[in-house]
Design a protein around this nucleic acid. Sequence first.
DNA 1: AACTTATATGAATAAAAGTTCATATTGTCA
DNA 2: TGACAATATGAACTTTTATTCATATAAGTT
Lengths: 205, 205
Amino acid sequence: MTALRTPKQQRSIQTRKRIMDAAFHLYAKKGIHGTNSKEIVEKAGVAIGSFYSYFKNKKTLLLEMLEDYLDRHYLAIWKPVEDITINEMGRDDIKVLIESVFAAYDISPEFHRQTHALRYSDPDINRVYERERNREVTQIRSLLESNKSRMRVTDPEAAAVVIHNAVENVAHTATFIGSQIEKQRLIDQLSDMIFIFLLHGSRSA
Amino acid sequence: MTALRTPKQQRSIQTRKRIMDAAFHLYAKKGIHGTNSKEIVEKAGVAIGSFYSYFKNKKTLLLEMLEDYLDRHYLAIWKPVEDITINEMGRDDIKVLIESVFAAYDISPEFHRQTHALRYSDPDINRVYERERNREVTQIRSLLESNKSRMRVTDPEAAAVVIHNAVENVAHTATFIGSQIEKQRLIDQLSDMIFIFLLHGSRSA
DNA sequence: AACTTATATGAATAAAAGTTCATATTGTCA
DNA sequence: TGACAATATGAACTTTTATTCATATAAGTT
């Protein structure tokens, strides 16, 4: 392989972007394994050679796309609720936060589904997802600790992981697989469960 | 393709079983995509032609293996705790059940991981997993309803799904990915969360 | 305009892997 | 033992797809 090119002119920046956009939509639509390089460049309207001018191979393209996507996912969750940290966390705050998590999956449920599938069989993909999990768990943990006086949780570190896993998987089931049960009922039960867990018996409940 | 053979003699029953066993171990060890048919029959000590005498293709082999595996998984969870339904469910019963779930992953964490990965990208695999989810959720729900008088849960149907998702994902994270946090701490927090959710304020708590 | 650098092209290459089928061997039963 | 059914074999076929690289075109610079 010849060395990767760093885009310098506008047209090459465009070309690179076109490839990423085309891949993103195709991956979401036809799956990652179901999409080959030819289709990507065809949809992008560029030649196959351009692909390998700007990306080492298909895998690094995917990793870069995933990092971008998870950054957007993370912001979609926490941006709308960034003031909860400051206030005292209440039942409604928890529900709002969980609703924000569910809403974040609307960016591209299919791309998320496809890449999430890979995390269990591909260590590189998993690494990117672990970075994401860590920052989400850290956020939850700091929420727990900034409300420490009202909380009855004995092990906030483990509790944060458990809460994160619970919310994540309910969202995944609802988003990726679908359920007989309406999303809102799941969100309600999830909110109840977490609220009661965190603040059961608390005076300010 | 010529029609599939139905094993009639002992040796063909053996051949078929050898192929399934070899595939099971290779899939766990090298991944499903990382294992090709040649390797499977080589490890099984039979010829490639035999493979296609007894299995339509690689996919149907996998589906059959997965059904078998999930039957074992299901039994591993519920067999050890089948009397909990009868007794009144207490804090310890919940922990025992959750520990039983975690233990069930010891059958073959790697095979489980590999197939679980596929459920989000392969509808056929997903169908088998959904059958599994349904019977697990049904079990949980009937536990909730047989202890109805003591429960404070407003929506047992949705609660069963939420509880199932929470336990499943914590087990998956601990089993497939690993965590800084010791398994037992996660189990403890999970048990607490579920117990409090189900019985908060209950007299018999 | 001449020269250099950046960018675009796509036919050709190369490697992998699933599946078939004509042939050979083994078992069964009369 | 002979004949038919069941089973086993593996070279050959087919298809698919990622990646390379020699060549052509466009942009920037002096």
